Amino acid sequence: MSLKQYYTLGNSGLRVSRLALGTMTFGTDWGWGADKASAREQFMAFTEAGGNLIDTADLYTNGESERWVGEFVRDSGLRDKLVLATKASYSADPSNPNGGGNGRKHLMRALEGSLQRMGTDYIDLYLLHAWDMVTQPEEVLRTLDDAVRAGKVRHIGLSNVPAWYASRMQAVAELRGYEPLAALQMEYSLAERAIENEFIGLGTRYGMGVMVWSPLASGLLSGKYKPSTGGQFGEGRLQTMSGSNNPAFSKFSERNFAIVAELEKVANEVGRSMAQVAVNWVANRPGIATVMVGATKLAQLQDNLGALDFELPAALRERLDAVSAPAPGYPYTFFTPGMQTMLSGAAPLGDKPDGYQAPVRISGPAAGVQ
Rank of each mutant, 00 (worst) to 15 (best):
N160R: 10
P162F: 05
W164K: 04
Y165N: 01
S167G: 14
S167P: 00
S167Y: 06
R168Y: 06
M169F: 03
V172C: 03
V172L: 05
E174F: 00
E174A: 09
E174C: 10
R176A: 05
G177L: 02
G177T: 03
G177H: 00
L181A: 07
A183R: 10
A183G: 01
L184F: 07
L184K: 01
Q185G: 00
A191E: 00
A191F: 08
E192S: 12
I195A: 00
I195Q: 04
E196Q: 10
E198L: 03
E198Y: 02
F199Q: 12
F199Y: 08
I200E: 04
I200P: 14
L202T: 08
L202E: 09
L202S: 14
T204C: 10
R205W: 15
G207S: 06
G207E: 05
M208Y: 02
M208V: 05
G209Y: 00
G209L: 09
V210S: 10
V212E: 01
P215K: 03
L216H: 10
L216I: 11
A217Y: 06
A217D: 03
S218D: 03
S218K: 08
L220G: 12
L221H: 05
G223W: 00
G223E: 04
K224V: 15
Y225I: 11
P227R: 04
P227D: 05
S228I: 09
S228N: 15
T229C: 09
T229P: 11
T229E: 15
Q232A: 10
F233A: 13
F233Y: 15
E235R: 14
G236K: 05
G236W: 01
R237S: 09
R237Q: 06
Q239S: 06
T240F: 08
T240Q: 13
M241C: 11
S242V: 13
G243C: 09
N245K: 13
N246W: 11
N246A: 13
N246Y: 07
A248M: 01
F249A: 02
F252D: 02
F252M: 04
S253W: 11
S253L: 14
S253P: 13
E254T: 14
R255C: 00
F257H: 12
F257Y: 13
A258T: 00
I259K: 06
A261N: 08
A261S: 12
E262L: 12
L263E: 06
L263H: 04
E264C: 05
K265D: 13
V266R: 14
V266H: 12
N268P: 05
G271I: 12
R272I: 14
S273L: 10
Q276T: 01
V277F: 11
V277G: 11
A278H: 06
N280R: 04
N280D: 04
W281P: 03
W281A: 09
A283Q: 01
R285E: 10
P286L: 02
G287L: 12
G287W: 06
I288M: 13
A289N: 02
V291N: 06
